[in-house]
Write a protein that binds this DNA or RNA. Sequence first.
DNA 1: GTCTTTTTTTAGTGATGGCTATATAATGGT
DNA 2: ACCATTATATAGCCATCACTAAAAAAAGAC
Lengths: 215, 215
Amino acid sequence: MAPRGRPRSFDREQALRSAMEVFFARGYDGATLDELLTAMGDIAPPSFYSAFGSKDRLFREAADLYYTTMGGVMRAALDAPTAREGVARLLHAAAEQFCRGDGPRGCLIILGALNSTRGNQDAHDYLRSLRQEGPEVIRARITRGVSDADVPAGAPVSEMASFYSTVVQGLAVRARDGASRQALTAVADAAMAAWDPLVSRPRRSRRAPARSKPR
Amino acid sequence: MAPRGRPRSFDREQALRSAMEVFFARGYDGATLDELLTAMGDIAPPSFYSAFGSKDRLFREAADLYYTTMGGVMRAALDAPTAREGVARLLHAAAEQFCRGDGPRGCLIILGALNSTRGNQDAHDYLRSLRQEGPEVIRARITRGVSDADVPAGAPVSEMASFYSTVVQGLAVRARDGASRQALTAVADAAMAAWDPLVSRPRRSRRAPARSKPR
DNA sequence: GTCTTTTTTTAGTGATGGCTATATAATGGT
DNA sequence: ACCATTATATAGCCATCACTAAAAAAAGAC
């Protein structure tokens, strides 16, 4: 059953991929509609608005596409036999993905709209909400490691997740600045050096420890 | 000897400080001249251009001001008795500075122009060049630690500097996303857990190690 | 007081931003 | 053939962008 009216003359998915690359290279604010339309195959504004609604909705679709793709790689990396191996592979995957040859470097989710400007509030908030999932998924993997007993019980799971996700975000900045894949891999290895000291460091108790001189 | 013509009716330094805050909150691209002029005390465009030259030059001055201030705090933190203590204080200083109460969170140098757009090439490049100094100054401090013998000879100084500066950049992103000072401090502590394993890990030799199966 | 120098005030400029109104073309349904 | 439907092409909308021309105002020099 073909659609009813005049058929669309461009490939919507391909156009979305092209738009994603422009957003990746320029960020939400830096990507102009002209540049997007050109990259998407010189489609005209009305065709664009009919297919995607607005620059903001296009961005969300592009971010979803990027997040799905990248998230798949990250999830696969995390899914190693042990939590430690999973996090190590995650960091290495980030180092590699953020340096992939031809296109822009870094990460669309992390770098796409860090500043809140006049017209990017929705894009800004959306990316932030996606970034919040980073620590969550790492935390889940380490927690599974505790269940599987490849991570000692009492390890500071949340702090570790927060730390490693901070490293990933730092890697995105370094990659955007042109750091080599080797340099980022070395950073990943350095971050993993913290693993053993971290897992054997007990989680802080809820009650603050007694201070010698509370003042 | 007072200047020759009509005296300027606003405080240039105060105006620069205000502009710095706007750039900090919005980034280079997101800060509009209107917003800048309003924040600077409703000065008129010609007064602005006569005093600062252009939006780009203003940004560079604002970045310099921020860099000097922040750099002073960072340098002071690094200047602890040992390299380890210095880096630890540096990370904690970053965690605190990036969360300072009223203003925007994060770091102007790191977040101010990460995407390269149509009109921000100079600002983008300038911030990147400032960021390059991050690893350098950390590296210098750890190298001094080797001289002072509070860091073992053979420690992978460059990799450690690269790692810790990546953490600082990650902290800026987390801060911008609203992470609490405590959360960032915990990240700093986690990063410092890597110190002992790192310093006792020998620097990789220049020649690649022999592979068992070179293919 | 008049001249010179510098800043301010007022009112713009051209370029570009995201987006849209209108009319035309291409399909399926009957 | 004719209609309903959907997409296209053409041409522009208005707001905002960074920036500036022209003239009036405020200071020192003489």
